[in-house]
Design a binder for these strands. Structure first.
Lengths: 204, 204
DNA sequence: ATCAAAACCGACCGCCTGGTCGGTTTAACG
DNA sequence: CGTTAAACCGACCAGGCGGTCGGTTTTGAT
């Protein structure tokens, strides 16, 4: 029982350190030794717990990345009444963590998709699956927003969901390097603009 | 004189083949030998013309990528009367080439920015410079659109320009793999939605 | 034809990478 | 205790990488 606990603990430590380095340096540019050095562990420990670098990465995606995307980008929207407001706040929160150079899991997704595109279809598929979950949940929130009168009935929920995801991925790509703060401000401003075009016309 | 021509021709061949492979396989995942194999050239030829792999890549960015971004994403907008229409058509054209799996230079930019982010600041800077040129030109087109009455006067041109670039980068990231056609359709639909929110209110 | 410079060749080097494996330490259990 | 399996170590390997360099071929001017 305790053995199993230790196993889990070690694997988790490796995954956390792995994600950190894969995120900051890229998958192909990060060696297993890099990760092990951070943890004072050896190759033997790594290959005792994981079959290969690829399988290791996939376990990170399915455990850490998926859970985080879910808890940070999906769950916060579910409970709220007005989906557009909820999405807006959610994106702003995510960009704020990004601005402080912490790991922003929406971008982790976009970043890895770009890196593995055309290089490792298997991994791309896992990443796309997570995107799909995000998209599906956005769509159902938007649909709910229609029936609740927060969104125009003729709006194409799927199109909107994709547009939200796309613009978010893109702004994160642009935020690398400089003036992240201003980009975030501009982005949120335009998002509100866009969202206004989806709301029912309110007679002032 | 003829010597110089041959020099240029060989360098250009290398750059074209290099971009092709860097784009499809990634920079860190493409070896110089990969490129040379395609051209039946040797290491000697490569290091005769270029100082290093990095310098080679930068020359590709400044020559091929920059020119193409300019001619495909910037120039087509300059001449047109209504900037929003022009931008819309331009994006649609770019996504169409992307759909046919040809090289789409807007995405080349986004792709490389993701790959080099945090790994090679020098290269990131060159890529950001190209983004900046794109942005600046979008802004001036949008401003012109305001004075010409195609765009609401209170619109924040810089914010809009960033939003356009971001959403484009993002949709291209999402288009990797499957249903590119539908994503493009949805994206253009929502772009038109968004642009409508920037236009002066027309009394129907 | 001559010859120097430009263009190109390809063997070679040092380094790093993912992965292997025989061995050692650790710790739960009878 | 002693035993046994899980957990971990680290030297090692084959292969690939960016980059070097002494040498050969091509080329254009004389």
């Amino acid at each position: 029982m305790d053995k199993n606990l230790k196993r889990m603990a070690t694997m988790h430590r490796m995954q956390v350190a792995g994600l950190e380095l894969f995120y900051t340096q890229g998958y192909y540019n990060t060696s297993i030794d890099d990760i092990l050095k951070k943890l004072d562990l050896s190759k033997g420990a790594f290959y005792y717990h994981f079959q290969s670098k690829e399988e290791f990465f996939i376990s990170i995606v399915q455990n850490l990345v998926f859970r985080k995307v879910y808890s940070l980008l999906i769950e916060p929207i579910e409970g709220e009444a007005n989906p557009l407001h909820a999405i807006e706040n959610c994106l702003d929160d995510a960009l704020q963590t990004a601005e402080h150079n912490e790991m922003d899991f929406g971008f982790v997704l976009a970043n890895f998709m770009a890196e593995f595109n055309g290089r490792n279809d298997k991994i791309v598929q896992y990443l796309r699956d997570i995107c799909k979950v995000w998209e599906v949940n956005l769509v159902s929130s938007l649909q709910r927003g229609k029936t609740d009168g927060f969104i125009e009935r003729h709006v194409d929920s799927e199109g909107v969901a994709n547009y939200i995801i796309a613009s978010y991925f893109g702004i994160r790509t642009l935020m690398v390097g400089a003036n992240a703060r201003m980009l975030r401000y501009n982005y949120m401003q335009q998002t509100r603009n866009y969202f206004r075009s989806l709301s029912p016309v309110v007679v002032a």
